[in-house]
Design a protein around this nucleic acid. Sequence first.
DNA 1: TATAAGTGAATGAACATTCATTTATATTTG
DNA 2: CAAATATAAATGAATGTTCATTCACTTATA
Lengths: 197, 197
Amino acid sequence: MRARDEQKENAIRHEAMKAVVQKGLDGLSMQKLAVAANVSPATIYIYFKDREDLIMQLCITESERMVTATLKDFDPEMPFGKGLKLQWKNRLNYWMKNPLEAQFLELVRNSQYGEKVSKMTKREFSAAMRKFVLGAIERKEMISLPAEVYWSIAFSPLYTLIRFHISGKGFHPEKKYKLDDAQVNKAFSLVLKALTP
Amino acid sequence: MRARDEQKENAIRHEAMKAVVQKGLDGLSMQKLAVAANVSPATIYIYFKDREDLIMQLCITESERMVTATLKDFDPEMPFGKGLKLQWKNRLNYWMKNPLEAQFLELVRNSQYGEKVSKMTKREFSAAMRKFVLGAIERKEMISLPAEVYWSIAFSPLYTLIRFHISGKGFHPEKKYKLDDAQVNKAFSLVLKALTP
DNA sequence: TATAAGTGAATGAACATTCATTTATATTTG
DNA sequence: CAAATATAAATGAATGTTCATTCACTTATA
């Protein structure tokens, strides 16, 4: 028996994400992907059932990596301020170190496959987040809020800043926008001010 | 001379946005669009140069409608709290009354056409926003912040809540999420708390 | 030597766009 | 006012391209 060449699968996965991020989901052509990954189109179908399966497998792998990165050193029993800060750090870190993968995930989530992807979300993850928030409310470290309102205040400013950074486009058209620690810390302190009693 | 049938153009525009929102940008097929709008494929090319022009024209028309809606009753010299509240109201209103159009714009902005679209953004609009914020800082009604950090706190929670509402998916998988006035007001008050000295 | 990896060429469907005509109507002409 | 004409709207079929996927075959190796 001949063994699978792991490098081939890696090349396919990497070039597929690159194509999607650079040219949109419909820019992912199986024939062009084969050329980019230096394999035959038929080879892709050894590793993936079809085009949709390829996209879904990439999502599954990357979602898991992202969840793992996001939960690094995190404990749902942490004090609120410390836990939220760690969440910001982990999420920011994942984006900065994996911009291609993070953008790929975001693109697919905003696409017609968004439904399918959201069904693969880890239970473990939302459970930890829920426990963290409920504990914080109980201990009066945080005000009581509907989960969606909490999330919108706690994390959407961070993701908005990250998107500004990745695109390089802020509100000063002449120069490239760059997110720095000072801005992250400032935004975080405002969010904390909003969420604490 | 034969006059153009305005209803045909409207049908094309409407069905195009519907297709994009329902099936993604690559789900917009000119031949299927012709069937949906009840015209010949060739007719579409009377009104629009090509597929990309169609998408861009839709963006231009809708961006203008959105800017107009957002600036309704707004004056950059308004007191900060009042002005920000009106902004929230106008933006929320536009989304609730034009979910199809708003989702279309968002989808195209997140796509490979995003670059092109952002170049069409109204000067008038950003000028008004800048004046509003600078005035508020000057009068000490708002803390001084980099524009991007300000925007991320001031508006991204609103858009996040709107996206929850439109998708119907919040953090309770069993029931449909619905954004109500109480939640908007709560989120707004937290944002205001974060941004005021 | 058996088996699965890997291939290049082929297939048929869907795609954006064009073209040779036909159709409706605003304007001109009698 | 009515018939003729000019003009652009509107069309269905056709064009050439690109697409995802398959298949008969070759290659590497356990």
